Computed example of a mutant assay.
Amino acid sequence: MIRFFAQPKYSITTVKLVGYELFIREQATVGEDWRLPADFSQFKPQQIIHLLAETLKTFPQGLSCISFNLDQEQFVDLNYCRLLKTLQAQTPIRLYVELTERQGKGTASTTLQELVHAAQAYQQAGLAVCLDDVGTGTNQYELVRTMAAYTVEYKYALQNVRGRLPGDEIHTQIKFWREMALRQQKTFALEGFEYDTDNSLIAAFHPDIVQGYYFGQPHILPIAADFN
């Protein structure tokens, strides 16, 4: 069984909840712990988007955005784009696809040209593309620069660098990506807030969106069938 877990996303401008980022979790047997799937390729696009559609039916009115993650292998599978286009037409909530820093489980590497082509398709379908975890894994400067015309948001993840980089280096990286987002008129999200001291980053860099355990931990979401 799979379900989405949700983590709240807050706007710094309005100081209000604007939406959620959704994470897939699986449960091998009823009653066992929910866990991160080892291989996302085991799930078909139809299965994931059906789950997303059934989950959206349970959300309260007033949310402006919902995002969920696709690795590179999933992102270039345009069945996701086709199904999401249909779903977007059925909901007022803006759907964001977050391209993660992970390649995926496939044997063939995804090319930058394939990623750009896919991002263009999502844009033409009226879907928003966010580059997740910029500066981490495969989501480095060259990829971000090349895909800029087809993306609307950059997200920097504090949890990826906390404890690995000194504070000054983290600030330098946040400043780099924040300024790049401003120049290109992209939304800038900062995630991974965990402590009171992290709030100083809001005043220093003025992210548009914030999220993290400090603001709310991921929690399991019901689907419409649960209420039947």
Rank of each mutant, 00 (worst) to 15 (best):
K155Q: 08
V152S: 15
E169W: 05
G163C: 05
D133F: 01
Q173K: 09
D132E: 00
T146K: 12
Y154V: 02
V152Q: 14
A149E: 15
E169V: 11
R162N: 10
L131C: 01
T172M: 11
Q140K: 06
T172N: 12
R164L: 09
T138F: 02
K155H: 09
R162P: 15
T151W: 08
R145V: 02
V134A: 05
L158P: 15
L143P: 09
Y141T: 03
G167N: 02
V134I: 11
R162Q: 11
A157C: 09
I174R: 07
C130K: 08
R145K: 14
H171Y: 15
E153Q: 15
T138M: 03
T151H: 12
L158D: 15
L158W: 05
L131G: 01
Q140V: 00
Y150R: 00
R162G: 10
L131M: 06
I174D: 11
V134G: 13
Y154I: 04
M147G: 10
H171W: 13
L165C: 07
A128E: 01
V152L: 15
T136E: 13
C130N: 05
V129P: 01
V129L: 01
I170A: 05
V144D: 07
V161N: 11
T172V: 10
A128P: 02
Y154Q: 07
V144R: 09
V134R: 11
D168Q: 11
L165G: 06
Y156W: 10
L158C: 11
Y141A: 00
R162D: 12
Y141W: 11
V134Y: 13
M147D: 10
A128V: 04
I170C: 04
G135Q: 02
A149H: 14
T146P: 05
A128C: 02
V129W: 06
N139F: 05
V144W: 08
M147F: 10
A148V: 07
D133G: 03
Y150M: 02
R145T: 04
Q173E: 14
A157G: 04
R145M: 04
T136L: 01
N139W: 10
Q159R: 05
A149W: 14
G137Q: 03
V152W: 12
P166C: 01
T146C: 02
Y154P: 13
G137Y: 03
G163M: 06
N139T: 09
L131W: 03
Y156A: 03
T146V: 08
L131K: 02
N139H: 09
A149I: 10
L165N: 05
T138N: 07
Q159G: 10
E169L: 07
D168I: 06
T172P: 09
N139D: 08
K175H: 12
G163H: 06
T136P: 08
A157D: 13
T151F: 08
L131D: 03
C130M: 06
M147R: 10
